[in-house]
Amino acid sequence: MIWQLDLAILTLVVVTAVGAIYIKDLLGTAILFGAYSFLMCLLWSIMGAVDVAFTEASVGAGVSTVFFVGAVFRTTRRTKD
């Protein structure tokens, strides 16, 4: 395991998590959450948890982003905070 890579991805994960919470547009939240999931998948594959990383790549970054976009499409993009 390379700790420099690990630290860089951990920083990016925290940045995307904060971004997904603070951005004032729900579609942007959905896309940033997809990016967060994909970075999480990278983190797990660095740790050697290949099965978990595979699951997260297909579930978190793939299907759950689609669910978020679908829900935002059926409701509204606007948010106050």
Partner: peptide
Amino acid sequence: AKNNLVKKIVGMNIFQT
């Protein structure tokens, strides 16, 4: 602290992951 329900759901997922 977030007011929007979808933001709360995103928060729940971040907590889970």
